[in-house]
Amino acid sequence: MATAESTGTEADEQRQHQQQQPQTSSYPLPAILTYPASAPPHLVAQGAEGRVYKTTYLVPDLQCAFKYRPPKPYRHPILDQRLTRQRILAEARVLVKCRQEGVPVPAVYGLDENVGWLAMEWIEGEPVRAKLNQWLSSRAGEDVESNQKLIDLMVKVGDVVGLLHKHGIVHGDLTTSNLMLRPSSKMGASEVKSDTDTLLDGDIAVIDFGLASQATQVEDRAVDLYVLERAFASTHPRAESLFDQWLLSGYKSSFKQAPVVLKRLEEVRMRGRKRSMLG
């Protein structure tokens, strides 16, 4: 059993997790996480949709992201059950499809749509949102708009979004929190922890397909981009101006039908209610 053979550092880690237990234990865990065979679950994120635990799956050294959609007590139980089931299944189908097509997403390990959980590959690294904010604050007051690192990042993000759309997937909730920046395989271990200059290095992986759908409509793709654009505008206003120029150029490079989508994006932007009609 994993716990019996754990080394000193692992035991330390577990103790740390246990210290955080008051927070996690106030939520009932799904039965599968209470079995002694899995590593103690560690709540890593409480998103809007559910909670993501870091644990292991089947074997003690297979790290996994375990997404649990607990019942939402505010919602009518029938409506809740309907939505949870639909969403778990849709998410798993989309992830499998992405994996087959070579889009960088976590692999699916297992699921139970009635209880509402989905076990996925653990992605190393940090969300783009955290990295980007860290990087921006290290360059406070600087003009970042022509910075090559930032431009590269925007192009990379656009490229991955283009890849998603190319394979008929619409993410539905593209924010910089749902884009992971994982240490690229080329990077040495020593490089990873150096100064702020390398903060934006790495490969993009897309996570949280909770609102994703398999759709090829221009409209859905344009809305996807619009959501991402607004996420940039609201959380990284300083990087907003690079969206049009660089992120979209990355998008165009990986997705042939990009021009049609970008044309629709213009319309979607105009559609927000009460938008000023000047100009």
Binding site: L79, G172, D173, L211, V223, V227
Partner: peptide, 8 residues
């Protein structure tokens, strides 16, 4: 129908 698109 339940119509949520992202945060819209």
């Amino acid at each position: 129908p339940y119509a949520v698109k992202g945060m819209d």
